[in-house]
Amino acid sequence: MSYKRLDINKTYLITGVAGFIGFYLSQKLLEQGCRVIGIDNINDYYDVNLKYARLKILKPFEKFIFIKGDISDKAMMMNIFEEYKPNIVVNLAAQAGVRYSIENPDVYIQSNIIGFFNILEACRYNSVDHLVYASSSSVYGSNKKVPFEESDFVDHPVSLYAVTKKSNELMAHAYSHLYKIPTTGLRLFTVYGPMGRPDMAYFRFTQKYFAGEPISIFNNGNFEHDLYRDFTYVDDIVEGIEILISNPPLEIVPHKVFNIGNNSPEKLMIFIETLEKALSKAIGREVIFSKKFEPMKPGDVPATYASTDLLQETVGFKPSTTIEEGLQRFAEWYVEYYEVK
């Protein structure tokens, strides 16, 4: 299978650079000698100290330029593209979170719709080689057919967050059709790992445990219908993106969408047990979470399960990190970063 390798002579613009995936992708590109322009508005959706800690790791790289700004500022975005002339753009800036979108819809429209539109416009007027952008597994809504395939019908979203991500796919397709901008959308499935997002379940569970509080599990305690999630380790996501950014779509309308998931869904309760074991090993004593069971929250879906066949057929890549490996790395990082005794 032949595909292009990373070109270190190109300039890479990464939005959401202080975010979880943006940080790891930028670090990997910088380590290989690429020039990276990073944009982030450092919003306070979660602990900004974690965002600054990620940036602190990136700042020593000579070819890293950080710009604090918001992608919803069109004039700023046009100026950045004009000044730095990026060849590859990876849009990872977005307002994340399904539940948060129910209470705060405005920020999703501002960042995920207007911000993404500004990026498309900047790409249109500053001919880029490839725009890669984060979509989400949430576009599948409550689809019953599993595993989820890119060709599945995705017109019944169950959250505004999912609506914005599906909108991004439609907008990108239109710009690819009209202006021949090569674009690739990534439907990401429950990404986890060290330095991850504190609003994600595994991170919240860990924080709750060390605060002496019970964890909430939203399945009504119904183990016959346990929640399933396709947990995907961050290094696998980054490796998939790294391969895809150098291999833009060659179709007449140069737009494609790929699932990046583990293709191996885990019961939430098994994931929790694995996290307990990982934390036990990291701190040298047994960890058992105190659990309380609650009803499913609006916008949540019972299962996510990615088919990764298209990704494998196109670039020969499939995520491979087990939850045992991934959660152990997270647990060890958490204990060190938060100085847990």
Results as ranks from 00 to 15, higher is better:
residue 56 K to V: 00
residue 25 L to R: 10
residue 31 E to D: 12
residue 41 N to V: 00
residue 55 L to Y: 08
residue 21 I to R: 01
residue 26 S to N: 10
residue 43 N to G: 02
residue 17 V to R: 02
residue 12 Y to A: 05
residue 51 K to C: 05
residue 51 K to V: 07
residue 58 L to W: 02
residue 8 I to G: 01
residue 55 L to A: 08
residue 20 F to R: 08
residue 3 Y to G: 08
residue 47 D to Q: 15
residue 27 Q to R: 15
residue 39 I to N: 06
residue 21 I to D: 03
residue 38 G to D: 03
residue 54 R to L: 02
residue 55 L to F: 05
residue 17 V to F: 00
residue 37 I to R: 02
residue 12 Y to R: 08
residue 26 S to L: 11
residue 54 R to H: 06
residue 39 I to A: 05
residue 59 K to Y: 12
residue 49 N to G: 15
residue 9 N to K: 12
residue 37 I to Y: 02
residue 39 I to V: 15
residue 51 K to L: 11
residue 15 T to S: 15
residue 45 Y to H: 08
residue 30 L to P: 04
residue 25 L to K: 10
residue 46 Y to I: 09
residue 4 K to E: 14
residue 54 R to D: 05
residue 17 V to P: 03
residue 59 K to M: 14
residue 21 I to N: 03
residue 25 L to W: 10
residue 55 L to W: 08
residue 46 Y to P: 04
residue 30 L to W: 06
residue 34 C to L: 07
residue 19 G to C: 06
residue 5 R to Y: 03
residue 16 G to T: 10
residue 4 K to F: 12
residue 11 T to K: 15
residue 34 C to T: 10
residue 5 R to M: 12
residue 59 K to S: 14
residue 44 D to G: 09
residue 9 N to P: 00
residue 4 K to M: 13
residue 37 I to A: 01
residue 23 F to I: 01
residue 59 K to E: 15
residue 45 Y to P: 01
residue 45 Y to Q: 10
residue 15 T to E: 05
